[in-house]
């Protein structure tokens, strides 16, 4: 408990200090409200539009969560397949890295063309940005399994699948967790970008659409509120992944052992 406080308190204090400074700056310099609303004004706006914002947040969280899960599964499965074959690795991995270079904003319209407006396109967009770090980190982890332990499994005549399941995968867990943590943040970014392109207005318009609509009507306070909420979605996803990672590593990995 003490340790949690020691870790959590400094950033919380820093954040509060920044918000207070921001509030004071707005009060002192009085910028136009459409340029920079004060934190309190943003809160007030969020409160008024709370119903819409909650729906939007849930919708975005849903896309990001689904996209993340798909990216996690696809990334780990692909990495596992690639790790078993030098041939596939040489053939496919460079392509996968190249794929990573294609800007998402440019693909998003294609996703809309293929999947239509709505959830599928945003989920796909989230999954596409999030998949590569999972793939790369998992592959890296699987390949850097201690050769001495590989030899041990060879001595016991373990087959490929057993070796993967009982040796390579557990030993890659720290890398996989790292990849998943990066992917958690990226999934939210991918979702919001997807929503810009493929989102829909109405009752459960996602945060990306809220940002666009608020921007068009010069509701900067609402833009800020929506941005803060999408950051919160990312934060929660990241926190959940980190927690699960900590759970799976706490017993043995150096990063979690107190000593």
């Amino acid at each position: 408990m003490k340790k949690i406080l020691r870790v959590a308190l400094p950033p919380i204090f820093t954040a509060i200090a920044l918000l207070v400074a921001w509030e004071i700056a707005v009060v002192v310099f009085k910028p136009a409200a459409y340029l920079l609303p004060s934190p309190i004004a943003i809160l007030r706006a969020a409160n008024i539009d709370s119903h819409q914002l909650i729906n939007a947040t849930l919708s975005t969280a849903m896309s990001a969560g689904l996209g993340f899960v798909i990216a996690a599964v696809v990334g780990m499965v692909c990495a596992s397949v690639l790790s078993q074959s030098q041939f596939l690795q040489r053939g496919l991995y460079p392509l996968a890295s190249l794929f990573q270079m294609v800007p998402l904003v440019a693909i998003a319209p294609l996703l809309v063309i293929w999947l239509g407006y709505g959830l599928s396109a945003t989920v796909a967009s989230a999954a596409i940005v999030a998949v590569f770090p999972v793939l790369a980190n998992t592959l890296d982890g699987l390949r850097s399994t201690d050769p001495a332990l590989r030899e041990l499994f060879r001595i016991y005549n373990a087959n490929r699948f057993t070796r993967w399941w009982k040796l390579e995968l557990p030993s890659a867990t720290p890398s996989i967790v790292t990849g998943l943590r990066i992917a958690a943040g990226l999934a939210v970014i991918g979702t919001v970008v997807g929503e810009f392109v493929s989102g829909y207005a109405g009752e459960d318009a996602p945060l990306g659409m809220v940002v666009l609509a608020a921007m068009r009507s010069a509701r900067t306070d609402l833009v800020f509120a929506a941005v803060a909420l999408s950051a919160a979605v990312g934060f929660v996803l990241f926190g959940a992944v980190s927690f699960l990672g900590w759970l799976s590593l706490r017993k043995w990995h150096a990063s979690t052992l107190s000593r």
């Binding site: 001495a148 041990l152 005549n157 030993s171 990995h253």
Partner: peptide
């Protein structure tokens, strides 16, 4: 075989490490 470094699986407890050859 018994090696100098021991070669235990760090994510398994002692019991499951010892049982590994039988498990495999």
């Amino acid at each position: 075989f018994c090696f100098q470094e021991g070669r235990l699986l760090p994510w398994r407890n002692v019991l499951d490490n010892v049982a590994l050859p039988l498990e495999l």
